[in-house]
Design a protein around this nucleic acid. Structure first.
Lengths: 186, 186
DNA sequence: TGGTAATAATTACGCACTTCACTATGAAAT
DNA sequence: ATTTCATAGTGAAGTGCGTAATTATTACCA
C-alpha cells in the first residue's frame, strides 16, 4: 500500500497553498466558492470547508492507525475511557455518554472488544438493568501500548506548531462547537 | 426530537469552559490527559482532540442537514461538484478524485442520485470505458436551492467569529492537513 | 501485430454505525 | 400493590463506505 495515502484519500489532489498573507488556503475550494458568493461570507464558508477537510483527514488517520492494531477509532476510544475509569469499568450508558454516541453503538463496540478478549461484561450488583464493561488484563496492556504509540504519532505532527498555534486551534474548534450548541438550542 | 441534539450526539455531556486566558477548553479531556502525559505534549493532544470533536460535530451537522432534503453529505457533495463542472458533468473517477473518496463510493452515490432523478449516467464518446455523471434539470434546481440554504446555515455560526478568527481557523486546519501530508510521505 | 500492463467502472462482500422496536428492570404515584 | 413512566441494554433492518476481485476498454511496446 502506498504510504502517502490514507486508505484511498488521494491527498495529492488536494492542493494547499500559502496566501499572500502567509496563511494556508485551498485554491480549488476558494475558486469554486468565490463565484456567486458575497465576499463577506466567503471567509466563513472557507473556514468551515477547511475544518471539514481536517476533520475528515484526522478521522481517517485515526481509523487507519487503529486498524493496524485490529481496532477501530470507536473501539479504541472505549478502551481509553475504560482505562481512565475507576476500577477500569463503566456502565454501558456511561460509556455512551462519555463517547458522545448512542447506547446501541456502545453495545456493538463492546461486542467486538469482548470477542477479542479485551473487555468483559460484568453485571452491576446495584442495578440489575445495568451492565458494566471492564478491561481485561489483555485490554489494559493493549490500550497502554496503543496510547503511547498514538501520542507519539500525533505529536509528530503537532510538534511542528507553536504552543500558541495549538492553543488557538483548540480554542477556535471548541468555540465553533460551543456556538453550534447554542445555535441549535433555539 | 430534541432540538438541542444532533442525531444522538449528546452535547450536554460535552462540557466546554473558558480557561483563565480566555480560551475555550474541554475540562474532561484535559482531566483525562494530564495524568501520565508530559506537559509539553498536552497542548498538541488537546488541540488534536478538539479538532476531532469539531470535525465529528460538523460532519453530523452536515449529514443531518442534508438528510432533511433526502440526501447525505456525500450525495450533496457530488451534486455540488457537478454543479461547478463544465456542462455540469464529470467522469466517475474525476468525481472520486475531487471528493477524495473511492471510485466504489462514487458508484453508490451516483446510483442513489440517479434513482432520485437528480443525475444521469452518460457514456463518454472519447473513452468507452468511462461513464460520466451529469446533472438533470431537477438536480440543478435542487443543488442550487440547497446551496443557498446551506450557506445560510453555516453563516449563522461563522458570523459570530471575527474575520481574523476565521482566517486563523482555516489556516491552522489546513496547516495540519499539510503537515500530515508531509509526515506521511516518508 | 499480438501480448501485456494500466485504467474505468462495477459486482460481491464485510464492517461500523444508525434508527426503530422490544424486553427487562427500577422508580414514582395513587 | 398495581399502574405508569423512565432507564438500561439489545435484536433486526438499513445506510454508508471500505477492500478485493471481475469485466471491459485502452495504452504501450517488442
Amino acid at each position: 500500500m502506498n504510504r502517502s495515502e490514507i486508505k484511498d484519500f488521494p491527498m495529492s489532489a488536494l492542493r494547499i497553498e500559502l496566501d499572500r498573507d502567509g496563511c494556508y488556503f485551498a485554491p480549488d475550494t476558494r475558486g469554486m466558492l468565490n463565484k456567486g458568493l458575497p465576499p463577506d461570507m466567503l471567509a466563513g464558508i472557507e473556514a468551515w470547508a477547511a475544518l471539514r477537510i481536517a476533520g475528515r483527514l484526522t478521522h481517517l488517520n485515526m481509523e487507519r492507525w487503529a486498524e493496524q492494531h485490529g481496532l477501530s477509532e470507536g473501539r479504541m476510544s472505549v478502551l481509553f475511557r475504560l482505562r481512565k475509569a475507576p476500577e477500569q469499568r463503566l456502565a454501558m450508558n456511561e460509556l455512551a455518554l462519555g463517547l458522545s454516541t448512542t447506547p446501541r453503538n456502545v453495545t456493538g463496540l463492546v461486542d467486538n472488544l469482548e470477542r477479542d478478549g479485551l473487555v468483559r461484561r460484568v453485571p452491576d450488583p446495584e442495578d440489575r438493568r445495568s451492565v458494566q464493561a471492564q478491561l481485561t488484563p489483555a485490554g489494559t496492556e493493549k490500550i497502554d501500548a496503543l496510547w503511547r504509540s498514538s501520542v507519539e504519532a500525533q505529536t509528530a505532527v503537532t510538534k511542528r506548531f507553536t504552543k500558541d498555534e495549538l492553543k488557538q486551534l483548540r480554542h477556535l474548534c471548541l468555540k465553533l462547537v460551543q456556538l453550534m450548541k447554542e445555535e441549535m438550542s433555539r
